[in-house]
Simulated assay, not measured.
Amino acid sequence: MDQVLLGEKRYNNSSFLTDKISHFWTTRDDFLQHGFGYIAVHNDDIASVCLSAFITDQTHAVDIETVEVYRRRNYGAMVAKAFVEECGRVGIHPYWDCPPDNAGSIRLAQGLGMSLDFNYRVYWYGLGLST
């Protein structure tokens, strides 16, 4: 991804990409200066995106998402492979995590040669408000 691609509105769902970036980065320029990513395009739609979500030192947390109608067509695998290869080329450690029940994401990460660093538990609970 570069300045030109991010400035284009030629894709039917350009907002999908800008929303992904703005979810993790304060500005598009911050993303372009510190992160990177890849997209897969089908006709005039962005089918999948893989990008740096968070960074620390030489580690980039991976965020990947494929638009639902394009899932199970290997678009996610293509962008993830390009991302991981770029990490290796420039000396960045890709960090990938996902919930343990996300079998597809786990298979994809393992297929790219990534391995489990650690397990962690996340607990959710509701807060009741009383008046």
Rank of each mutant, 00 (worst) to 15 (best):
N74V: 14
L51Q: 04
G35K: 00
N74Q: 15
S52I: 05
F36P: 05
F118W: 11
R72C: 14
N119K: 13
L116S: 06
F54I: 12
K81E: 10
I106S: 07
I39Q: 00
L17Q: 02
V4H: 08
G76I: 07
G37Q: 00
N74H: 13
W25F: 06
K9M: 11
G76Y: 04
E8L: 06
A77R: 14
K81A: 14
A82Q: 10
C50I: 06
D30G: 05
R10H: 15
W25T: 00
D44L: 13
N43C: 08
A47S: 06
A109N: 05
S52P: 00
N12V: 08
I55F: 10
W124S: 09
G76N: 06
L108N: 12
E85Q: 12
T18Q: 14
T59Y: 09
T26A: 12
V62Y: 00
Q58G: 07
T131A: 07
N119G: 05
L5M: 13
V41N: 05
H34V: 13
T18H: 08
V84N: 01
N12T: 10
A61D: 15
Q3R: 14
I21C: 01
I55K: 04
E86D: 06
G113H: 09
D63Y: 12
N102R: 05
A109V: 06
W124R: 15
T26K: 10
Y70V: 06
H42Q: 15
N102D: 09
V79W: 00
A109Q: 05
M1S: 08
L32G: 05
L32M: 09
N43Y: 13
D2K: 01
M1I: 06
C87R: 02
L17S: 05
L127M: 13
R71K: 15
D63C: 10
T56C: 12
A103T: 11
P94H: 02
V67I: 14
G88H: 13
F36H: 04
N12I: 09
L112C: 09
F54G: 03
D97R: 07
K20W: 03
G113Y: 05
L32D: 05
R121N: 07
E8Q: 11
D19Y: 09
R10Y: 08
E8K: 07
T59N: 15
P94D: 04
G128Q: 14
I64T: 02
Y95G: 15
Q58C: 09
V69F: 04
M114I: 11
I21L: 08
K81I: 03
Y75H: 14
Y123C: 12
E8V: 01
L127C: 05
K81Q: 12
W25C: 00
H60R: 09
V122L: 11
V49P: 00
T59V: 14
F31M: 00
G91L: 03
W124E: 10
R121D: 09
M1K: 00
Y123S: 12
M114K: 11
A53K: 10
D101F: 10
M114P: 04
G37I: 01
I39N: 01
